[in-house]
Design a protein around this nucleic acid. Structure first.
Length: 188
DNA sequence: AGATTGATCCAT
DNA sequence: TGGATCAATCTG
């Protein structure tokens, strides 16, 4: 049981590689006795202090400290006063980086079982967190523990097929970094 | 294109 | 302590 949890060494690598390989992985949320399970379909990489789109571009603060911390932990922040965004910390300790989980397809029934109830496609980090009851209480949560919130390996590796790369969303202020093709998605 | 909404950060 | 800023979403 739960032997497919992504280990810390998965996260403790190059952020772009992690962002690509998270596509097709299963995001799992356990909350008040219920378990939601879904496939990650869209991610964005935020990598290093040189990345002007990253919160870490201004260095260490109380808020960004988590991005410098142990990989495999959640970085959850509130944005625009209304929404939360879920990120997973990557790279070695003291290098600030994370992958934003933007979209996922949430299964409303166990995967193999055919059902008339449609799955939920959560396109957008705010909607994703709202549906999965993810807020700042999960900031700094260790995703390798396999409790409350974790990620499991995909049935098949999507990294080598069907990945679309594009500009990151909402980072027009980030000068030349806005051009980076650091957003990755797979078509369902 | 505008309104919403609150944590964060830094200059007072 | 005040105000500008913001990796979003919905409405029209």
């Amino acid at each position: 049981m739960r032997k497919n949890i992504l280990p810390r060494k998965f996260y403790s690598r190059n952020t772009l590689k992690v962002a690509r390989e998270l596509l097709g992985c299963f995001l799992i949320r356990e909350y008040r006795g219920k378990i939601w399970r879904g496939m990650i379909t869209e991610t964005e990489a935020y990598h290093g202090e040189d990345d002007l789109a990253s919160h870490a571009s201004c260095g260490r603060t109380a808020r960004t400290e988590i991005m410098y911390g142990e990989s495999g932990c959640a970085y959850v922040y509130m944005i625009y006063g209304m929404y939360h965004c879920l990120n997973v910390v990557t790279e070695k300790k003291d290098f600030p980086a994370a992958v934003l989980i933007r979209s996922a397809k949430i299964f409303r029934r166990p995967t193999p079982k055919k059902t008339k109830i449609s799955d939920v496609y959560l396109d957008g980090p705010g909607k994703l967190c709202k549906f999965l009851k993810i807020d700042r209480k999960l900031n700094k949560w260790d995703l390798t523990k396999g409790e409350k919130l974790w990620i499991e390996r995909p049935a098949q590796n999507c990294a080598k097929r069907n990945i679309v790369a594009g500009r990151r969303i909402g980072v027009d202020y980030a000068q030349h970094c806005r051009e980076y093709l650091w957003r990755f998605s797979i078509n369902l």
